[in-house]
């Protein structure tokens, strides 16, 4: 906990979401979401399934379209303009529950593809960057294998490295450990903790409460498409205010 508070949070604003609403057909998934994220902040979003937490972070890089309100990422307003969307996406890295590596490319090619084509980095330089980040996630020796030859935990770490190769200013994690075995969860969480310690702005949908306690400086609880409660981890876990949060925490921490 002490560690988390040491990590600096600047006053600069990274993401501003105001009065954002989203519907799937007639179903109101996200209701009046207001959220400001400062640079360097590490936010954990939790809540029961179907509460809209994944949808919320997928709206931030426009994988999902919102119908009302505004999202501003790094000073760029998210509109339907494709150029804006691509610009935001290249600044925002994302890791998925099912990794979504490209199975027809090697690990190294997975990592160099976006820098080469989106950032127009020369191939050699992109490969050096990729190897740097693969070393960081501790799998440089797998660089020439295909994703199908790696374990789930390794694949997720490659996915993190692939995002990092774009040098993103913000990282989004959509339940990065929920498709993994317990042993592999740790190796992925360790990678994420390391990333947090370097001051990356992170929004993480996860049920790993230990991770939330250790690195988050804010925990957000969502239910029925709304932010029900947000607080510092210590206060959030020890002294939840709303009855809905209390029930949720008692259920997931109860065993």
């Amino acid at each position: 906990m002490a560690e988390a508070t040491q990590m600096k949070v600047s006053d600069e604003i990274a993401i501003t979401i105001s009065k954002m609403n989203k519907w799937y057909g007639a179903f109101h998934v996200l209701r009046d979401i207001d959220l400001t994220v400062n640079r360097g902040e590490r936010i954990v979003i939790c809540g029961p399934s179907g509460s809209g937490k994944s949808t919320l972070i997928r709206c931030i890089n426009a994988l999902e379209e919102h119908q009302q309100g505004s999202i501003e990422v790094d000073g760029t307003l998210l509109s339907s303009d494709l150029k804006n969307i691509d610009k935001i996406r290249s600044e925002v890295g994302m890791c998925f529950q099912h990794f979504n590596l490209f199975p027809h490319l090697t690990i190294l090619e997975n990592c160099t593809l976006a820098p080469i084509w989106v950032r127009k980095t020369p191939k050699k330089e992109a490969e050096e960057t990729a190897m740097h980040f693969l070393e960081k996630v501790k799998i440089p020796d797998q660089a020439n294998k295909y994703p199908g030859q790696l374990s789930g935990g390794q694949q997720q770490r490659v996915a993190i490295a692939r995002s990092l190769c774009m040098r993103p200013r913000i990282m989004l994690f959509d339940e990065p450990t929920s498709a993994l075995d317990p042993e592999m969860i740790k190796e992925v969480l360790d990678t994420m903790i390391e990333l947090a310690e370097e001051g990356m702005t992170m929004l993480c949908v996860t049920h790993e409460m230990g991770f939330a306690r250790q690195v988050a400086n804010r925990v957000i609880f969502m239910d029925a498409g709304q932010i029900v409660e947000q607080n510092e981890p210590e206060a959030f876990f020890n002294n939840p205010q709303s009855p809905r949060t209390q029930l949720f925490l008692s259920q997931i921490l109860g065993h």
Binding site: K87, L113, A114, V118
Partner: peptide
């Protein structure tokens, strides 16, 4: 997820199709 991963890396439509979707 393949479309989403391509999108989330900032590839535009022709790049995503040519490099990720069509080869597969």
């Amino acid at each position: 997820g393949q479309y989403e991963a391509a999108d989330s890396l900032g590839l535009d439509y022709p790049q995503a199709m040519r490099l990720i979707i069509l080869p597969q």
